[in-house]
Amino acid sequence: MNILRKILFPFAILYGLITAIRNFLFDKGILKSYSFDLPIIAVGNLSVGGTGKTPQIEYLIRLLSGDYKVATLSRGYKRKSEGFVLADANANAEILGDEPFQFFQKFPNIQVAVDANRKNGIEQLLSKTPKPDVILLDDAYQHRKVKAGFYILLTAYGDIYADDFMLPTGNLRESRSGAQRADVIIVTKCPVDLSLDEQNRIKRFLLRRNDKGINQELYFSCIAYDDCIYSENSKIEIGELQGEAKLLLAGIAKPEPFFSYLKNPNDVCLTYPDHHHFSENDIQEILIKAQDSIIITTEKDYVRLKGSLPVEQLFYLPIQSSFLSKGIEFDKKIKNYVGTGTRNS
């Protein structure tokens, strides 16, 4: 924790008090939460950024879209449009935001919508034909105006929420007690060889901080990287890149694992802020530093860079969320909620 964050500790106390009062008012029904007549799953976190919400939403899409009409609803962070937008043939990353546009490109059989007002967004989706069977709320854990029927709380390995402080001293959006609203907690971005002893230690640490812990399920997941990188019209196996100089580019919250998976000694790495909109100067910088070598970026950055860099140079590395264990149990829990619930409350 740097010195500035320590100095700002009184503001963290004030911010924590404000969020605690807000949650109390929702808990007591003084501030109204709205329910809807279909299953709604909210995926989110207590801390800001970098917990793997996008791979988890995509996991749920793959799990459910074969049997149900699925819709995703996101805020559309840093998009240049306003209000409710339902993705169509004219959609792009500037209209939807990078993550929703990624959903739209990867899963053409689902509805993808954005609206900062989740209540209005759900109402708009329910007025469309076909009407969705289930809605996935992306990054909506603190959006309490809508009462989801199932809450998935994500916390990243090595950056567990129970070890953190409120903003601006730490990275928490609300108190650690907010974890009690979750139906399941997933520790994301774990090492693939995380031992059972370490998993049990984390489980004891998290659930003893949570009065509802006895009723919650805890899961552990990792990021599974693809064996290939992809461009608009070709792919290359990762093994073929050994010893080849390339430019690695990431505008995500925590890019270190991405770089570590791909990096060779002669590679150039460029980092940009999360959800960065690439300017013409940025594009020129990338081209100068890449020269004639290939450029590999994340899926989220690819949807913003596509069309601005040469097709033959620009590639992306897909990722998926993968459970270390109990994945079948998690799938059954989700399918049971969606299949038996006609109402999200």
Rank of each mutant, 00 (worst) to 15 (best):
L8F: 10
F9Q: 11
I13L: 12
L25E: 01
F26D: 02
A42D: 03
L46A: 06
G50A: 10
Q56K: 05
E58N: 08
L64Q: 07
N90W: 03
E94P: 00
I95F: 00
F107C: 15
N109V: 11
L126R: 05
L126F: 15
T129V: 10
P132S: 09
L136Y: 05
D139T: 09
A140M: 10
Q142Y: 12
K147T: 13
G149W: 07
Y157S: 05
A162V: 08
M166A: 12
T169D: 01
T169N: 13
L172F: 06
L172I: 13
R173I: 12
R176E: 06
R176M: 15
S177A: 13
V187F: 02
R209C: 15
I238F: 06
F258T: 03
V268E: 08
Y272L: 04
P273K: 07
D274G: 14
D274I: 04
H275K: 02
H276F: 09
H276K: 00
H276L: 08
H277V: 11
E280K: 00
L287A: 12
L287G: 10
G307C: 13
S308W: 06
P318Y: 00
S321W: 01
S322I: 07
F323Y: 02
S325L: 09
I328C: 03
K335I: 06
N336F: 11
G341Y: 14
S345E: 15
S345F: 08
